[in-house]
């Protein structure tokens, strides 16, 4: 059985999906690639926007999400964050 992902891993997965799509993606792609329910994805996207990891861009074709430099930094430092939260039981 697969281990349940924690919040930090889900954030990493969402940001990775956006990064792999040249830094910009439609919400349907995030839903498909991140393996979350629609409601969960919505909540995570709102949180990521509030924390300035991603930004929402309104286009004629609909909404897209773009990864910010803060989001990129999170991906780069992800292992340090995970090591820290594991060591101090914070995830």
């Amino acid at each position: 059985m697969e281990r349940k992902r924690n919040k930090l891993e889900i954030i990493k997965d969402i940001l990775t999906v956006i990064k792999e799509k040249s830094g910009r993606i439609k919400p349907t792609h995030i839903l498909y690639k991140s393996n979350l329910s629609h409601q969960m994805m919505k909540e995570y996207l709102e949180e990521l926007m509030a924390k300035k990891f991603i930004k929402e861009i309104e286009l004629k074709q609909g909404k897209t999400y773009e990864i910010t430099s803060k989001g990129m930094n999170y991906l780069e430092e992800y292992h340090t964050v995970i090591n820290f939260t594991n060591a101090f039981g914070l995830d």
Partner: peptide
């Protein structure tokens, strides 16, 4: 902890 909080913006890390 503050450095990690600046990267992750996680409330638990800030409180720690």
């Amino acid at each position: 902890s503050y450095r990690i909080y600046k990267i992750s913006s996680q409330k638990e890390i800030k409180l720690f």
